[in-house]
């Protein structure tokens, strides 16, 4: 009985997510390395720390050096908070109210145009690319398969 009990137990401990403190440490390590790399880029071509961290974490996951269970609990929690984390960057505008007073309507109009343009242009460009993939290279465009 005892040995039978032990087998599934070791299996479940392997599947278990890493402790949150370990997951935080992985994020901190990735951010630390990224913050060392970021200043190496010239000011004319800035690569912010989160861009590098995003790429590093993706390749760590893709190469199975870091497994999903090592990072996903903390990562999903951070993503669930993301709208709240944007609040200070929105309120930051309080320091630039004079710009908004001078050009507010123009800025909001440009944002409205930009949003619609990005949506439509990206969607049509992609439709073209998918058409080329299907009709020129004869590759499957079925996402599900």
């Amino acid at each position: 009985m005892a040995s039978q009990d032990k087998v599934p137990q070791t299996e479940t401990t392997e599947e278990k997510p890493s402790p949150i403190i370990v997951q935080m440490a992985i994020f901190a390590a990735v951010l630390f390395v990224s913050s060392l790399i970021s200043p190496l880029f010239p000011p004319s071509f800035p690569v912010p720390t989160p861009v590098i961290g995003l790429i590093i974490l993706y390749f760590l996951l893709a190469s199975h050096i870091v497994k999903l269970r090592n990072v996903e609990k903390f990562g999903d929690f951070m993503i669930s908070l993301i709208a709240f984390l944007f609040v200070p960057s929105g309120i930051q505008l309080a320091a630039s109210l004079d710009i908004l007073k001078a050009q507010g309507i123009q800025i909001v109009s440009v944002v409205l145009i930009a949003t619609i343009v990005m949506l439509v242009v990206v969607a049509y460009t992609t439709a073209g690319m998918i058409w080329i993939r299907k009709h020129v290279f004869h590759r499957s465009v079925d996402v599900k398969s």
Binding site: M24, F27, G53, L54, L68, V71, M78
Partner: peptide, 22 residues
Amino acid sequence: GGDIIFWFLNPATIAFAIPLYR
């Protein structure tokens, strides 16, 4: 205080690697 919350955008942004990898 805002800066403290703002700092957490760093780990939250790199966390987007997880849904991408999924």
